[in-house]
Design a protein around this nucleic acid. Structure first.
Length: 329
DNA sequence: GGTAGACCTGGACGC
DNA sequence: GCGTCCAGGTCTACC
């Protein structure tokens, strides 16, 4: 008999909108079921892996009560095994991080005050991972590779190194050889950098990556950016992306997608470097929320081409949602 | 400080 | 089925 937990989210929380808000919801071990409107994945817990299925607005039998869920309706989390008391506590923290439940309605309202375009839809939260380590690795596996390659690397990392189909923990990757990551997970030249990153996370405060320091709101943006840039495999794009995953939205992770958006949607002309500069200047007035304004503009563009993200299937639409493919249509 | 080229993989395309 | 080309951000060497 598995454990069932109920979590009360912020009063404006909508699972389908707030999960299907950033591309990582399509990356293994994450799975959004567009038909059932449920999110599931394997979580790494003290007692071993456990698969969770999260739904909102389901009845007592776990069946979907309605397609239109009232915002703020409690989240039902059903696990495939019984959880110990300490595991329940741990998994609630992981789910809160992943779903951004720390960003309450007041936080969302503050963003909408700066950029009212998203007030009606309620967009504000961006899906992320249950752990900082997974966010960093997902970012590294999204650099210098097309989206299907990122999908493939994350799937293989879960299948080859992860426990029970979950995302591998830093300890497991630190013990893995770069050669195995390259041959079986197809991570290419990222192999040694990924192992080095994992070793730094395992070292923690002792000369490595202190995740708590990065997650601490008291740490300055400048200090975090500098520390990220010093990590193997992390450049300007990856650092800015990891910062938004940490809830720091002032910097823009500008890449080739940004250039396409600048040209196709904003009508900017010139070289890639010139377009990037103009994109940066365009979103600068949004200050601390620049990334969210930028991202939701791109996301709406994707949805105009491929339909609402909560209807995307991981293995079909989910493979082609980037602008590079959208613009071919 | 700025720039060129190498690093890998997978998909598209031509034959 | 095979070979070639291309996209993608980081890192290093060089000017």
């Amino acid at each position: 008999m598995g454990t069932r937990l109920s979590i009360t989210p912020p009063k404006d929380y909508v699972l389908s909108r707030d999960v299907c808000s950033y591309g990582y919801f399509l990356l293994w071990p994450n799975f959004w079921d567009p038909r059932a409107g449920t999110f599931s994945r394997v979580m790494n817990l003290p007692g071993g892996p456990a698969k969770v299925t999260i739904s909102q607005g389901t009845d007592a039998r776990g069946e979907r009560a309605s397609d239109r869920v009232k915002p703020g309706t409690s989240l039902s989390c059903v696990f495939d095994r019984a959880l110990a008391t300490d595991e329940k506590k741990a998994v609630k923290l992981q789910i809160a991080r992943m779903l951004r439940l720390d960003e309450d309605a007041a936080h969302v309202a503050a963003f909408h005050k700066v950029d009212p375009r998203w007030k009606k839809s309620g967009r504000a939260r961006l899906f992320r991972s249950p752990s900082f380590f997974e966010d960093v690795l997902k970012t590294v596996t999204s650099c210098n590779v097309t989206w299907p390659g990122t999908l493939s690397m994350n799937r293989r990392l879960c299948e080859v190194v992860g426990k029970g189909g979950g995302f591998p923990e830093a300890r497991a990757i630190a013990r893995t050889s770069p050669a195995l990551l390259r041959s079986r997970c197809r991570v290419g030249y990222r192999d040694a950098r990924i192992v080095e990153l994992a070793k730094l996370f395992v070292a923690g405060k002792k000369g490595g990556v202190d995740a708590a320091w990065f997650e601490d709101p008291a740490t300055s943006d400048e200090a975090i950016h500098k520390a990220l840039i010093d990590l193997p495999g992390i450049g300007p794009y990856a650092a800015a992306n990891i910062m938004q995953l940490l809830g720091r939205y002032s910097r823009l992770p500008l890449d080739t997608e940004s250039v396409r958006h600048g040209r196709a949607v904003l009508g900017f002309k010139g070289s890639s470097a010139q377009v990037m500069k103009r994109v940066h200047a365009h979103f600068a007035p949004f200050g601390e929320n620049a990334f969210r304004s930028y991202w939701f503009e791109m996301w709406v563009h994707y949805e105009k081409k491929a339909g609402p993200a909560h209807l995307w299937d991981r293995d079909t639409t989910g493979r082609v949602f980037t602008a590079a493919n959208m613009n071919k249509k």
